[in-house]
Simulated scan of single mutants.
Amino acid sequence: MSNADTFIHLLAGGVGGTVGAIVTCPLEVIKTRLQSSSCEVQCSAVRTLRTATASNAGCNASHMYFTPEMNWNVYYHHHQCTSINSRLAVFPESVLQWPASTSSAQPKGALSCFRHLVEQEGCRALFKGLGPNLVGVAPTRALYFCTYSTAKRKFNKILTPDSHLVHMCSAGSAGFVSCTLTNPIWFVKTRLQLNRNQNVTAWQCISNIYRSQGMVGFYRGITASYFGISETIIKFVLYEYLKVTLQQWRETQADSSMSNYVALDYMIAGAISKTMACSLSYPHEVVRTRLREEHSRYRGFFQTLHTVFREEGYRGLYRGLSTQLVRQIPNTAIMMTTYEAVVYLLKSLIDDKRYAETE
């Protein structure tokens, strides 16, 4: 029975995660772009800035041509006397004072990011990283739900059955196992989503990472993922509580038809629990994206957290949150509903088979 139950949760988790990932992939790409340090997405590849920082570069420049790069901004100083870009200077983003009158210099939102992706990189850009996402989401969700159900069974024997502590320990164990085993897949996915070169393939990205950093490079940002386990703990504790509460409420209703909305209970519980958990622990996602950037100047979890807060304020730690919520609510609702539906169907098939064998 134990092996059959493990297989059911393994398959259900994989199917649920895959369906959710396909439906919400464009929002995932936009969220990753907004989280990155190059989130000042431009409507054109190069824009002109009139700024006083030209004097800080040691040259007499009237215009500065800006190209958004990862973590650092590259400025080509165009001299009045020549049309040749004769000098290259590199500044941290914190050095610059954006002109208030230049609207294109302000950070863009999700809608502008969407338009930029479609106009500059084509509709295919909305599905960047989908390959690694599909490769990773099934084993990640399968490992997660399998570990969660197994750990829950074990902790129920040690602790008070179905208590909040059991759900917390189970979710923490599942998050640690899935993060550790699948971090390289998500690292490649993030790199592809941040890469503006449409022709870069997943295999080329893997080769570049291995050549420049070795196997250790695939685990950049894993510390942030470990801190992100708190999100899964909060989510599953709330999910289990809301699911039971909604079911008990429907059972007390005089209308017998109210007890038939089991799938709706799963969707509501999944959406609410994910929204609250994501809002509370979101900064770890921004930190993780920054650590996974190419040529990143960020080195560790706390150093990145401190740097982002010092340079960009608390808003920098919550960049892309609205897009993440818009993505996660349907993603979690679809994933949890599919998961519960597959578990129900497989258990029904197994019970029917056993009943037929006993006749």
Results as ranks from 00 to 15, higher is better:
11 L>G: 00
19 V>M: 07
21 A>M: 14
22 I>H: 00
23 V>I: 12
33 R>Q: 03
37 S>H: 05
39 C>A: 06
47 R>E: 06
47 R>I: 03
51 T>R: 07
51 T>F: 14
53 T>R: 13
57 A>G: 11
62 S>L: 15
69 E>A: 12
70 M>V: 14
73 N>A: 10
73 N>Q: 10
75 Y>F: 15
77 H>N: 14
84 I>W: 14
85 N>M: 13
87 R>P: 03
88 L>N: 04
92 P>Q: 13
94 S>K: 12
101 S>V: 06
102 T>C: 04
106 Q>A: 05
107 P>S: 02
108 K>Q: 01
111 L>A: 00
112 S>A: 09
113 C>H: 04
114 F>S: 04
125 A>C: 05
137 V>L: 06
143 L>G: 08
146 C>T: 08
149 S>W: 07
153 R>T: 04
154 K>E: 10
154 K>C: 06
155 F>Y: 05
157 K>Q: 13
161 P>E: 09
163 S>V: 10
164 H>C: 13
174 A>R: 11
175 G>I: 08
177 V>F: 12
179 C>F: 11
180 T>I: 06
183 N>L: 11
186 W>E: 12
187 F>G: 12
189 K>W: 01
193 Q>N: 02
205 C>I: 15
209 I>C: 03
212 S>L: 00
225 S>Y: 12
230 S>H: 07
230 S>T: 15
239 Y>A: 08
241 Y>F: 12
243 K>A: 03
252 T>N: 13
256 S>A: 14
258 M>A: 13
261 Y>S: 05
268 I>L: 03
275 T>Q: 10
276 M>G: 14
283 P>D: 02
284 H>T: 10
285 E>P: 00
286 V>P: 00
286 V>N: 04
286 V>M: 00
289 T>V: 11
292 R>E: 14
297 R>M: 09
301 F>T: 02
301 F>P: 06
309 F>D: 03
313 G>N: 10
315 R>G: 14
322 S>Q: 04
329 I>K: 03
331 N>C: 13
334 I>C: 06
335 M>S: 11
335 M>P: 09
347 K>D: 01
359 E>H: 07
